[in-house]
Design a protein around this nucleic acid. Sequence first.
DNA 1: AGAGAAAATGTGATAAGGTAACATTGCTGT
DNA 2: ACAGCAATGTTACCTTATCACATTTTCTCT
Lengths: 171, 171
Amino acid sequence: MVKQRDTKPSAKTAFVTHDHEGCAAGTLHRAQEAAREKGVRMTPVRQRALEILLEEHRAMGAYEVLDRLAADGFGNQPPVAYRALEFLVENGLAHRVRRLNAFAACMRPGEDHAPVFLICRACGEVAEAGADEVRSALLDAAARHNFTVERATVEALGLCPRCVDGAEVVA
Amino acid sequence: MVKQRDTKPSAKTAFVTHDHEGCAAGTLHRAQEAAREKGVRMTPVRQRALEILLEEHRAMGAYEVLDRLAADGFGNQPPVAYRALEFLVENGLAHRVRRLNAFAACMRPGEDHAPVFLICRACGEVAEAGADEVRSALLDAAARHNFTVERATVEALGLCPRCVDGAEVVA
DNA sequence: AGAGAAAATGTGATAAGGTAACATTGCTGT
DNA sequence: ACAGCAATGTTACCTTATCACATTTTCTCT
């Protein structure tokens, strides 16, 4: 499936160096599949926006995505980016990282998961951690207040393993 | 301690009607105490900003707080509000609600707690729920990635008990 | 008390993030 | 073909947040 697993280790997920091209291609493929199954339209702008997020493999601001979309011949006004990103978020293909006012491609499209973000304040990297226990604890807490949860945002700011010891890497 | 417990039930915490004046006064008092113990300065703007948040007992945007500060004779430029609010957040006297780009007074100043916000999308009310289990689950999840958590944001959007059945109240 | 350092405030300017509204294009289904 | 709706493009604008720098206040040390 992932063809070149040990040929191009160039980026990371969850703070671990890995074959990024394979990872991005695979995720894009799964995202397309998820969109098809869901009956929503993966139009050119939307697909390109997702590709951009996947290529960079990091949280990107809407305007940053917009610049790249515009460079590729799409509109260059904010709604172009916001609409594409909103679509991706609505359909579980990307996430919004509130603390950074940014967006990141979802690494598990179609899986219906509770995203928990680990944001390194030194290198800026963002990891998407699976954490079902966090979600259930949150639901329990909400239930005690008779509150019905529809969406949840869970983000942690701190230091990733590579930045934690000594060297405050310069992003 | 809270003198008029059953005389003025006018606002709410955690979606329950309660004596707001007593609650606000008590919280302000505890906040002042916490600041004193911590050796930080509770200056007039800062105190007033906290009072404003407590009076309204809801999440408020920085510019909204700014307007009220200006009306009280303080500066009317954004940094005035942002600095006061930042101070309050840094010292655990208020919280930032990312999803709303807003700030809310902390209901448990000095207690060292993990704030979890329950945000009602119908009436706009924000409750601060205690949820140590959420925090520990988050720390566990982070630990599995060797990530060191310094701060966490946990926010749930949904419906409060009063809005959940039928009537989508108009904020 | 008085000098110097540090913290806090005031102010102007501007960057960054986000939406509303409306015209146009293009894809559906009959 | 063509009616209807989804998606896109574009203009304009609003909200949120930060930078930079001058001024004032407060703290600290002798």
